[in-house]
Deep mutational scan, measured.
Amino acid sequence: MPSETPQAEVGPTGCPHRSGPHSAKGSLEKGSPEDKEAKEPLWIRPDAPSRCTWQLGRPASESPHHHTAPAKSPKILPDILKKIGDTPMVRINKIGKKFGLKCELLAKCEFFNAGGSVKDRISLRMIEDAERDGTLKPGDTIIEPTSGNTGIGLALAAAVRGYRCIIVMPEKMSSEKVDVLRALGAEIVRTPTNARFDSPESHVGVAWRLKNEIPNSHILDQYRNASNPLAHYDTTADEILQQCDGKLDMLVASVGTGGTITGIARKLKEKCPGCRIIGVDPEGSILAEPEELNQTEQTTYEVEGIGYDFIPTVLDRTVVDKWFKSNDEEAFTFARMLIAQEGLLCGGSAGSTVAVAVKAAQELQEGQRCVVILPDSVRNYMTKFLSDRWMLQKGFLKEEDLTEKKPWWWHLRVQELGLSAPLTVLPTITCGHTIEILREKGFDQAPVVDEAGVILGMVTLGNMLSSLLAGKVQPSDQVGKVIYKQFKQIRLTDTLGRLSHILEMDHFALVV
């Protein structure tokens, strides 16, 4: 994948999101292997301009796509893939009243899908469409860049269908997702969380590099694949309309690839034109409109599966009536509230959605109805927002919020430890010299600072030695090549209790 991002070429006709291997024109390309080798690009942008032909009021008969309808489940399912879809609609009884809503608040519980998330729908649909058009064949390999849930859905379907599955996901995604993927037989590649989507090191860039190296491999490409919004247009939206008897006044959905909100909203605009569509985008993402909503100094966020630093091709923002931004604290607070007060075992993005819903639905009156999409299960986040310690460490809970008995030293300040200034190293000294210094002084790690004293990161003896043994660096290389740029900081005025929580999850903390 090139470091400079080429513009994806656009073909003359058809839909841009065809499933299957992508040609340089962004659509299915038939021909000899030699032709494909000559024409197939190194990668295709996940934010390529959409060429979708959908228009409100256009006859369904003019759609270029294969459409399906929700099917009634048999008493005995032939395999677990038949437990994807037909998820329950559940009334939220307490939270709406707590925040003064007059309307009825309903939750579409997508964590009841077989793999635990709304992404099971698009995973199965992308595979079925690729099999139907002859792209996927027995023994082929599926590769997908994902925040985890699409990966789980694909790995689940691949396990049943017999495909090899490789999932490329950023490091910030939970260990629970990784464990589930491994249990399903998927191979996992992790990428830096802070890598831009168009960087060769991003999950998108690495996935395309693997595709170019592995024979008979395919990126189904949830960011561009029409099967993504079509899955929701054909099934999720129809289920909502049936469950609500066609009567709903507002739908609120958090947005990642945009397939969920695009597919549902398009069908609702056709069948229930008075329904307002509300999009939820986390602070630090750029999906919301108008652009002024996205202006923030924050560039990272903890909530998973929603928000991006690019506009995915499948996201149709014209069908969203209003956007709201959400933050991590309210997302996790509301997710825990949904679990504790409503018994809905949902993930953090569901918290984002409901946090926005109780604001947006203030305009609705008694007798009206708001539906929220709860995308995934708490299963993926047992060591994250479900953990009091994690919430404390991230600053989303305060010590006084917890009532468990603490040891005698818990409320003492870090400054009472009488710490001395640490050994520091410059980023320009060599790895070999740094190892000598650390061994001589008896230290395992040291902060790396520039000549102005600005902290650049941390270097550890173990990481340097393993990097040297693996051949990633040489003793003569500058130590700046092996620094940890993500590390926890703590102030002298913070409590030892807070430091204790940090050290339970990290090997060190830097006192500043």
Rank of each mutant, 00 (worst) to 15 (best):
D35N: 15
G185A: 08
R209I: 09
G162K: 04
P6L: 15
R224I: 08
E34P: 04
E9A: 14
K267I: 14
D249M: 00
K269A: 08
A48L: 05
P21W: 13
K98F: 07
G139N: 05
E62N: 12
I261K: 06
I214T: 05
Y233P: 00
Y233K: 01
E104T: 03
A226T: 10
P16L: 13
N149P: 05
E34I: 03
C109G: 04
K172D: 01
K97D: 15
A107G: 12
T53P: 02
L105F: 14
E201V: 04
L81P: 07
R182W: 07
G151F: 00
M126Q: 02
C103T: 02
V206T: 09
I122H: 00
P170A: 02
L220G: 00
R164L: 06
T257G: 02
E187F: 02
I167E: 07
R121Q: 04
L28H: 10
P200C: 03
A183P: 07
G31A: 12
W54C: 06
T235S: 15
S73C: 12
V118H: 12
T141S: 14
T141P: 08
E37A: 06
P12Q: 10
M89E: 03
Q7E: 13
E37T: 03
D35E: 15
A60H: 11
T235E: 12
T235Q: 11
H232Y: 07
P59S: 15
L77C: 08
A60L: 11
G116W: 07
L56R: 15
A253F: 06
S217F: 06
T236L: 09
T262N: 09
A186F: 01
H17G: 12
N212S: 15
A71W: 03
T191P: 01
D47M: 04
G31Y: 06
S27H: 12
D234N: 13
G162R: 06
T135R: 10
L124K: 11
E29L: 13
A253I: 02
S174W: 00
L105V: 14
G85W: 06
P41A: 12
I143P: 01
A231P: 08
I264F: 10
P49A: 10
L136Y: 07
K98D: 10
L56I: 13
P273M: 12
V180N: 00
K97Q: 12
E4R: 07
L184N: 00
S147D: 04
S117T: 06
